[in-house]
Amino acid sequence: MELLLKLFWAFFQIGLFSIGGGYAAMPLIQEQVVVQNGWMSIGEFTDLITISQMTPGPIAVNSASFIGARMAGVPGAIIATLGCILPSCVIVMLIAFLYRRYVKLHVIDDALRGLRPAVVGMIASAALSMIESSFLAATGTSVMGVDIAAVLIFLCAFLALRKWKPSPILIMCLSGLAGFVVYSVFGGV
């Protein structure tokens, strides 16, 4: 019981103080999990980051489920995950409520009009870093540091998306399949 409370409290703090996505959350998770509570060694923590990158979902939720399950089984996973998302639930639901109520106010409308194009710029910069980490991977198909297979998969996927507007999930499945075939033959990461 005490362990469950500790898990809840540790991930509640992570959820409350991480602003701006996964890379902002990582040092907080390390502080809580490795330094303060000693639930993992730094080596295991590195493995956890690797696993988080290999699985879908936010790093904070992934860590909560993984560490919760290792320390206290399925109840631990659920409690730690709830702790992690509770601050978001309260704060963002309040903002969602205020947004619906006040979005028609002139001052809010003006502020959001100023903000929207910046968000497009931010998403574009996320696209650029995804392209970088995909194209610059060292694999069996790399030529002068550029992974030719990744470039080809990217181009096919991008052209298909622009031309036929297929479901993005279908595109991701096909890309994964292409990756499996190509890297099995030529050697992978």
Binding site: A137, I153, M172, G179, S184
Partner: peptide
């Protein structure tokens, strides 16, 4: 890892 490396290129295309 092979599937993920392929998927990463696909994800980049979706965001683009």
């Amino acid at each position: 890892r092979y599937i993920l490396q392929g998927m990463q290129a696909g994800v980049a295309a979706v965001i683009c």
